[in-house]
Amino acid sequence: MPISIHTIVQGLLLLLYAWFCYLMWEITRQYIPYDTDVAFLRIKQEYISRDYYRWAFFLHVYTSILVLPAGFTQFSKRLRLQLPTLHRRAGYLYLVITLFLAGPGGLIIGIHANGGWSSQLAFCLLAGLWIWFSAKAWIAARNKDWDKHRNFMIRSFALALSAITLRVWKFGIVAVFEPRPMDVYRLVAWLGWVLNLIIAEWIIFKFHKK
């Protein structure tokens, strides 16, 4: 059987995704073993002393890394049909983390985000919508409303991917324009997920037309 271009592109995208997951793991690894004065936390010292912030931060960091692989496998038709149990278990993992751990954690970190009200609003909206879309997807699955479940999972996962896209935007913008550090931060706080959501809506729209 000849390998189609479609398969090659899919394979490359898969590799790219694995590479970004690896980069995210490298970022997570900075916080292992537990340390409150490393990496990003070096400039968050005024909040890290507060119990709730520390809990929120480490819950978010330690659990959200699992969301990327768990969420990604959900979109494979073959896995869904041939290994429905795996789909269900990975789905539970994704939703429990999103709804109860990484999501609320992100919301609390977002309240204290660097860069003032604009980036605080951006991150809180991101976390709020992420939790909301995930909850809707869960409820739809329980009601066996599969179209709705799929649509909300697309939205939810688009926001989960902002972990990667935000950092890619930041890297690209700094490489090209070299803006001041907090200017780029304020910019990617929005750019990192709004674009993803627009693409998600477009994908959902395409599904509807089919």
Partner: peptide, 12 residues
């Protein structure tokens, strides 16, 4: 230190 380590890398 933060700028030195993180300004131009994939991360925050």
């Amino acid at each position: 230190d933060h700028a030195e380590k993180y300004y131009d890398v994939f991360g925050r």
